[in-house]
Measured scan of single mutants.
Amino acid sequence: TRVETATETAWISLVTALHLVLGLNAVLGLLLLRWQFPAHYRRLRHALW
Rank of each mutant, 00 (worst) to 15 (best):
E8Y: 11
V3F: 04
L48K: 01
W11I: 10
L14G: 15
L32W: 06
T7A: 06
T5P: 11
L28R: 00
P38C: 05
A6S: 11
F37L: 07
H19R: 08
S13M: 02
L32F: 10
A26E: 01
R34Y: 07
L44D: 00
Y41L: 08
G23M: 10
G29H: 00
A39S: 10
T7R: 12
V27T: 05
L14E: 08
H46Q: 08
T9A: 10
L18N: 02
Q36C: 13
R45S: 08
L20C: 10
S13Q: 11
W49Q: 02
A6P: 04
R42Y: 08
T7W: 06
V21M: 02
L20M: 07
W11L: 14
G29Y: 03
T9N: 14
R2G: 10
L44C: 05
G23Q: 02
L48D: 01
L24M: 10
A47P: 03
L31A: 12
V27L: 11
A47K: 05
A47N: 07
F37K: 03
L24H: 00
L24G: 11
L18K: 00
A6I: 07
R43E: 02
E8H: 14
E4L: 06
V21H: 04
V27W: 05
R2F: 13
V21C: 01
A26H: 00
L33I: 09
H40T: 10
H19S: 15
V27D: 00
R2L: 11
R2T: 10
A6L: 09
L28F: 13
W35S: 08
L31G: 02
W35Y: 07
H40I: 12
L14Y: 14
G23Y: 07
Y41E: 03
A47W: 11
A6T: 14
L22T: 00
A6E: 11
E4C: 03
V27N: 02
H46D: 13
A6W: 05
W35N: 08
E4K: 06
I12P: 11
L48T: 08
L22H: 00
H40L: 11
R34N: 03
R2I: 12
W35P: 01
H40M: 11
L22Y: 10
A17T: 07
A39N: 13
T1K: 08
L28W: 03
P38T: 05
A10E: 04
Y41I: 07
P38H: 05
W11T: 15
V3I: 09
T5E: 02
R2E: 13
R42K: 09
T16N: 07
R43M: 05
Y41A: 08
T16C: 14
V15E: 06
L18R: 01
I12M: 13
T7I: 08
A10Q: 14
R34T: 08
A17H: 09
Q36H: 06
R2V: 11
H19E: 13
Q36L: 07
F37G: 02
V3R: 00
L14K: 08
W11S: 14
W49K: 03
W11P: 12
E4T: 04
Q36R: 09
L30I: 11
L31P: 00
T9D: 14
A17W: 11
V15D: 12
A39V: 10
H40G: 10
R45D: 02
A17Q: 04
H19D: 06
H40V: 11
L33R: 01
Y41F: 13
V3M: 00
E8A: 08
L30P: 02
R34M: 13
T7D: 15
S13A: 07
L24C: 08
R45T: 10
